[in-house]
Simulated assay, not measured.
Amino acid sequence: MGSKAKKRVVLPTRPAPPTVEQILEDVRGAPAGDPVFTALAAEDPPGPSRRAEDSEAQWEQLYQQSRAYVATNQQLQQARDGLRQKCECLRQAGEDLAREVDQVKQAALLEAAAASSG
């Protein structure tokens, strides 16, 4: 049984990346309707049809969203801190309860031992 030798395909060397000048030349030479520029264009491009009030309204909306985000984030941080404190209180209460249960068990064992010996 002979092993089949796989021939390695020699790939051509990678060309050097274009320079900034070459990129700018390509961009300047591209037609305005080139799919690269139109595919990523905004659905509502800025222009004479867009009014200043619309732009201001968008900025106001973004500002209000940012304020709401900051307020919600602060509320979440306060809630997290409150939960940490409550968790610590519950942990401490659990430790106290475990100690008291041990004390009750020991007292019950002492009483049982005293009752059986007497």
Rank of each mutant, 00 (worst) to 15 (best):
Q85W: 15
D54N: 03
G94E: 06
S49K: 06
L97V: 11
A93M: 02
C89N: 14
S49F: 03
Q85Y: 08
L83S: 15
S49C: 14
P17K: 05
R67A: 15
W59S: 05
Q58V: 12
P46T: 01
A113S: 11
V101H: 07
L97Y: 15
Q106S: 14
R80K: 12
G82A: 14
E111R: 13
P12Q: 10
L90W: 05
E56I: 03
A42Q: 11
Q78H: 14
R8W: 13
P46G: 00
R8L: 15
V101K: 05
P17L: 06
S116P: 00
W59L: 03
N73F: 15
S49M: 12
K7C: 15
Q74K: 12
P17D: 08
Q92M: 03
G94D: 13
Q106A: 13
I23V: 11
M1S: 07
G82D: 11
Q74D: 12
T72Q: 10
I23P: 00
E111L: 05
R50P: 03
R28C: 11
Q85R: 14
K6E: 09
P35N: 03
Q61K: 09
P45I: 04
Q103F: 04
L24S: 10
A115Q: 09
P45H: 02
R99C: 15
S55G: 06
R84E: 12
G33E: 10
S55W: 04
Q106D: 09
M1N: 13
R80D: 12
Q58W: 07
N73V: 11
P48Q: 10
Q103E: 10
L40E: 06
P45W: 00
I23R: 08
T13F: 03
